Simulated scan of single mutants.
Amino acid sequence: MNTITIHQTQLPIVEYRGQRVVTLAMIDQVHERPDDTAGRNFREHRDRLIDGADYFVLSRSQNSEIRGLEQDVPNRGLIVLTEQGYLMLVKSLTDDLAWTVQRQLVSNYFRPQPFPVPQTRAEAMRLAADLEEQNEVLALENQQQAKKIEALENLFMPGETVPQFAKRLNGVNSQQMLAYLIEIKWVFNAERDPDSSPKYRVYAIPRDKHWLTEKPITIRGEGILPFIKYTPVMLEEGARRLHDMYLAEKLPMKQTWDGKFTVSKFTSESPL
């Protein structure tokens, strides 16, 4: 199966009737949005999109007409979007990642550039030099990515809470992390009484994606009935995603941050 890398995300190259298309799941994946974000946007704005121009609804009987799909068309059908439909659907996404992904998808996915055939010796030498430079850049990016993954594997400590993990990211305001996770819908406050302490619980999507889990703790005290308190704790994949957000300067940062992206190693003396 042919694939293409868009902003460190590997996507299959899916074609229908000779043109490249994307599924709603592919849009969520490459834009790093929760599952069904693109689906919800599609349902809300379907009346503004043109069937057969902006999107196609494929049935299972059309399996043979689509190329590159990782699995067969499901029984419920499959929605695929053309370049025009994709751009209309993601108009509301304006963060830095969205701009980068849209540019790369249009330039490299929907409109692949034909491989240039050199006509002279000088052109051939320039092409070889360009390809060598591209390979060196790709090798450097892969090396940097490998170092980042290795560092996270060494630094992540199972059982850490989000604020504890954030304290080890230089410049991050760990006291604002839970409020930030509420904003991006990783956790929610299950406490209805505004005068009571918050009771943070993990949403289903980050739990299913192994970003966060919950640690139950039984609270006992004199004069009160025992009750269970749930504490959101980090999982390795969640640490990777938060670290990516950290490098993209999307986490709440301290005003005194020195601009350096460093992570303090976990030690046996670090509190959990």
Score class of each variant (00 low, 15 high):
V101P: 01
D130P: 00
R20V: 03
D28Y: 04
I79S: 01
E123L: 14
H31L: 07
Q62I: 02
E65R: 05
A122V: 06
R121C: 03
R76S: 09
Y86H: 05
F42H: 05
Q71M: 07
R76Q: 10
P74L: 13
T23E: 02
P34M: 08
E70L: 05
T120M: 07
P112S: 14
L58N: 03
A98V: 09
D96H: 09
Q113Y: 00
N75Y: 11
A38S: 15
S59H: 05
S59R: 12
P114M: 06
F42D: 02
L93A: 00
R17S: 12
R67Y: 05
V21K: 02
Q84D: 15
E15F: 05
W99Y: 11
M125K: 14
M125T: 01
G39T: 07
A122N: 02
R103Q: 13
D35H: 14
T100P: 00
S107N: 11
L127N: 03
S64P: 00
A128V: 10
R103A: 14
H45V: 01
G39H: 12
N41G: 07
D35K: 15
M88K: 13
I79N: 03
Y55E: 04
Q62R: 06
W99T: 08
S59L: 06
R76T: 02
V90Q: 04
S61N: 08
E65S: 06
V80T: 07
H45C: 05
N41Q: 14
D130V: 09
W99G: 10
W99A: 10
R40N: 15
H31Q: 15
N63K: 03
A129V: 08
E70W: 04
N63I: 03
R46S: 14
G18C: 00
E32S: 11
V14M: 04
R60S: 09
Y109S: 00
E83D: 13
Q84M: 13
N63V: 10
R20P: 00
A53E: 15
S61T: 06
V14S: 04
D51P: 08
K91F: 03
T23N: 10
E44L: 12
D54M: 04
R43K: 10
R48S: 15
I27E: 04
R20E: 02
V101H: 01
V117E: 01
V73M: 01
L11E: 01
I13V: 15
E70M: 12
Q71H: 13
N108C: 11
S92V: 10
G68T: 00
R76M: 02
R103F: 06
K91R: 15
E123H: 13
E15D: 15
V73L: 03
P112Y: 14
S61L: 04
Q29M: 09
